[in-house]
Amino acid sequence: MIARTLPIAVAVLALLTLPLWIGGTYYVNVTSQILFYAIFALGLNVLAGYGGLVSLGHAGLFGISSYVVGYMLQLGYGHTAAILMALAVGNVSMAIYALLSLRSTGIGFIMITLALGQILWGLAYRWISVTGGDNGINVPTRPAPFGLSLADSGNFYYATLVVFLLSVIAVAIFARSPLGAALMGTRDQPRRMNALGYHVLAIRFWACLFSGLLTSVSGILFVYYTQFISPQTLALTSSAEVLLMVISGGPGTLLGPIVGAGLVVVVKNVVSGFIERWNFLLGAIFVAIVILMPEGLVPGTVRLWRLATRKRAPAKAEIKTEGKP
């Protein structure tokens, strides 16, 4: 028990005290980015990791919530109204997105979500009267909950941290729950699950909504962080980036997407200072991970660690059950 709780306690303590020791606002801001991207990645992981439904249009859903915040503020509404509206629109959009894409699975699902993501990007890019087109929308202020102004990067960090911890707890609870087990069942043997009495489509639909909620939440944090939203946020590159976070860290694990988010954000912020070609590197990492460590960094490292520590690890034969999904 201690072996499990101790690392978590240390990690939470480290995060709580982070502004004190990390040495500078810049790094606090980078950590804030990691945290809200981790929420986004956790959201996609619910679908792609636990549900086996790889969405390549999630940046569109992320962007919708960001745009709604920007648009509502532009219309003169307050932050509370803007955030609530963003959550509502984000979830309704997710429901529509799910109804359209869940007609298919596997590769069909990937293609449809890619196309849906492009529609959303196209709307952001072309529906200039609402979105401002390429110029995007500026968000001049950040909210100040309980009188704490989030304009301060430390305060913003703590607000993001609270939302992040709540999200991690929510995903952890979900993953252990009966519904979570059912979702993973539909990933591995959808036909069997149906024959066992489960409503496979409904289970996937609920998973989409949960994923959509986390995606909306992270989109709102994102727009308040950058205080700007433009079509670039909804582009295929962004969907691919978050998918890379999930895949690189380890899909279907709790820690994987968080590690993946850390990796991508750090590489992007730090490495782009030295190398101009960030996208090239991103693509190369993608290819390398898929070829060399397809299960992701977290499970991959655990496997290597076990191999190294136990000299004769029992050869675990990879046996797949037959049967077509």
């Binding site: 519904l179 059912a182 591995d188 043997q189 699950m193 066992l196 797949k320 059950t321 049967g323």
Partner: peptide
Amino acid sequence: ITLFARNTIVHNVRLALLGLSPLRW
């Protein structure tokens, strides 16, 4: 054979039970 290869034997059977239980939601 159409089983859940990543899980334990007992989890496979638990999934069968859960399929008929309202708990599954």
